[in-house]
Simulated assay, not measured.
Amino acid sequence: MAEADGATAPPRPSPDPDDVTWIEPPRCPECGASVRVYPTNYDRWVSLAMVELPAKDVPAAFRWRLTRVPDRSPVPTDILAVRVRGIDPLPSEPVAPAHHMMCVPE
Rank of each mutant, 00 (worst) to 15 (best):
R68L: 12
P39W: 08
A98P: 05
P13F: 01
R65M: 03
P94T: 00
E52Y: 04
T77F: 11
S34R: 15
P54S: 05
V69N: 11
Y38R: 01
P97F: 00
P59T: 07
M1L: 14
A60V: 10
L90H: 11
A2T: 07
M102I: 15
A33P: 01
S92G: 12
P39R: 10
R63D: 03
S73A: 09
Y38T: 09
R85H: 05
R72W: 12
A96T: 04
P29M: 04
R83Q: 04
S34L: 14
A33Q: 09
D18P: 00
V20G: 07
S14Y: 08
V104I: 15
Y42N: 11
V84H: 00
P105Q: 08
L66Y: 06
R44I: 00
D71W: 06
R68E: 13
P89T: 09
Y42E: 15
D57S: 09
V46R: 04
V69I: 14
L66E: 01
H99I: 03
D57N: 12
V35C: 09
P26C: 05
P13M: 03
A60N: 06
S14A: 14
T67V: 15
L53H: 08
L80C: 05
D18R: 00
A49P: 08
C28Q: 02
A55C: 01
P97C: 04
A96G: 04
R27E: 11
R72L: 13
C31A: 05
R44K: 14
V104G: 07
W45M: 05
V75G: 06
W45S: 10
R27G: 10
A2W: 08
P10N: 12
V69Q: 15
R44E: 13
D16H: 08
P70L: 10
L48A: 08
L48S: 06
Y42V: 13
L48M: 09
I87G: 04
K56F: 07
A55N: 01
E93W: 02
Y42L: 13
A33L: 09
P89V: 04
T67H: 09
P11S: 11
P59K: 03
H99T: 01
V51G: 11
S14G: 07
R36Y: 01
G6L: 00
V104L: 06
I87Y: 08
L90S: 12
G32E: 11
W22R: 14
V69E: 14
R83N: 00
I79N: 10
M101N: 02
S14Q: 15
W22C: 10
R44G: 06
P105M: 04
F62E: 02
D43V: 12
A49E: 10
T67L: 11
A96P: 02
M1W: 15
S47V: 03
E3C: 11
T77D: 10
E3R: 12
I87S: 10
R27W: 07
L48T: 03
L90F: 10
P105K: 00
V84E: 05
P29F: 06
V46W: 02
A60R: 12
P105F: 04
G6K: 00
V95C: 01
W45Y: 15
P91W: 00
A7H: 07
V58M: 01
A81C: 03
W64F: 02
P70T: 08
P70A: 13
P94C: 02
D19Y: 01
V35N: 01
M101R: 04
P74A: 13
P74T: 08
V69Y: 13
W22I: 13
V84R: 02
